[in-house]
Design a protein around this nucleic acid. Sequence first.
DNA 1: CTGAAAGCGCTAACAT
DNA 2: ATGTTAGCGCTTTCAG
Lengths: 356, 356
Amino acid sequence: MKQVAERAGVHVSTVSRALNPETRSMVVPESVARVMKAASELGYRLDPVAASLRTGRSKLVGILVPDIATNVFTPILTGATERLSEHGYSVIVAYVGGDSNKQLDLAQGLIARRVDGLILATASRDDPLVSFCIERGVPSVLVNRAEKETRLSGVVSDDLLGAQLAVDHLVELGHSRIAHLGGPREHSTGYLRHRGFIHALAANGLDAASAPTEFAETYTREQGAAAARRLLSAHPEVTAIVAANDLLALGAYDVIREAGLNCPRDISVVGHNDMPLVDMVEPPLTTIRISHKEMGRQAADLLQQAIETLDHPARNVVLPPKLIVRGSTGAPRKGAMKKAAKTAASNKSASISNEV
Amino acid sequence: MKQVAERAGVHVSTVSRALNPETRSMVVPESVARVMKAASELGYRLDPVAASLRTGRSKLVGILVPDIATNVFTPILTGATERLSEHGYSVIVAYVGGDSNKQLDLAQGLIARRVDGLILATASRDDPLVSFCIERGVPSVLVNRAEKETRLSGVVSDDLLGAQLAVDHLVELGHSRIAHLGGPREHSTGYLRHRGFIHALAANGLDAASAPTEFAETYTREQGAAAARRLLSAHPEVTAIVAANDLLALGAYDVIREAGLNCPRDISVVGHNDMPLVDMVEPPLTTIRISHKEMGRQAADLLQQAIETLDHPARNVVLPPKLIVRGSTGAPRKGAMKKAAKTAASNKSASISNEV
DNA sequence: CTGAAAGCGCTAACAT
DNA sequence: ATGTTAGCGCTTTCAG
């Protein structure tokens, strides 16, 4: 930097000001030009480490994602990274397991690296890491999963509505024996999609209280299959399954096939997420589409706001999901149409509250 | 740190030495204990930014991946991140497009952040970024794709062998009219899988020179479909397709279906990568399995070596791929078995060289 | 084995 | 508008 200063015939502090967009206006344009020229001639670039040490800021943000990053988290990551890098931020990714202490450690490590903010894709409905970030005053936002209470800004899909869309679609096809293949209830996704399912059933005049329901412990095809097996053996009468997630739905496919049944002839299945390739499985999966990449982008925006205006109110962005009808849903099998809700029931359930 | 020093009754430099594993041995154990105690009581952690400014090292590594991170790069990333974080490194991910200048910029940004090393998942067969990293003396390794010449260490799958496995399998099933759906030839994967295809054909006594071949410009389902369309309209006689990649193979599925044909009855298809869910598409895809996560892990190991012993020889790790037979391959359709190689041809082609 | 002191490269008061 | 100066928190010679 000193060399640049000499070459441009100014003092280092002027170089600093000229090179930093935020302070550039303090310097007369002519000097700026000379500094820029000298810098590029010398191939000089500001040292972010030294700057970071001095300012406490870093233009770095940390993203914590679950280590099972095989599906929805990748587009969230790319969306967020893309947007963030447009604004000069770099992204440190930490893949975290379920261990809450290790999560805290990782977060502390990132904070020690002076990240300007954190994006958490890992939150449970009541997450100690969120408390931690708030205590430490680190600008943070949630993505994909929200907490029970809105303590931090975040962006999620309208999971309640998504599940309702699924149920409404099935009811329109004539189903009344609808079961739920639920996800982990400690995550807002699992919890809300279940609640959306229940509400939609009731709104369609079906018996929500006794609706067959099984929960998978994790969002995997295997756990989905296990839960589906429990579901179908206890309730052979069901004609349709609303799964909390595509992978779970695919697990249900496995079970349906191994039971010698056919989807959708014997049982209809609806997934959630519309992850890549589910349009190519057999049968192509009817599901609820979420734009995960857009979630990532908006989370990035939210985080930038949180960084810039430190004392901002927590704000929740809820993205609308969309029903994508493909081949895994159809009319219920003959003999199963008992007391079906004949009223055209679409959207009956659209106005229930969206608290987590 | 000064506070810790006071509390432990030693000088800051002793604290520094005690807290750093590398220099801990210089300090008498008793002092170490006192320092550790004081530090944990004060909740003190070393500041990596300040340390980095002083030492020039950072315990940070950068990974450059193509921004189309929808498939194989995620497991590479998680594998590498997992392994690296075991050794105290954090990972900065940069998603890069094809623009070579932007790539250089991004890399420079990472270097400015004083990353200890770089993992490149983006390399073309002759990549300016590799030259750049070498010039700048930044420890770097390649993953998934290699260069024509081995200038840097790297880990790849044996792409040549993979393609051969595919061809041998098809020949064993009785095919002789085998076409290639190639990937971008500027990448080692596209280039080598094509060469493997050619060699295997020749090794099986088939006419390699005139084998129908079309190349997709990118590894996407859409480009795969486009290339497959060209392929099948020019060569309706083919009974089997060796695709350079699963996504390409899936594009071929689309075309086969739109032509009113059936896979595998009319045409067999083999993919490459064994990405998630290709076992669930219809028909389940026969493909070449690569352990991308393992590639990521080994790349991490290689990078650590490169960081530790600066003047090491470039070393190429080649991982063995595996044929996974599923439902997309079968005997050739009747009337198509012309001059099929009747000799049991398996592994005939196993010993050709593996240069990129 | 430990203490002293000199910076790593930058930024932000403060002074001019 | 620009120059002066004092560190940010650490590591690492160099002395003792």
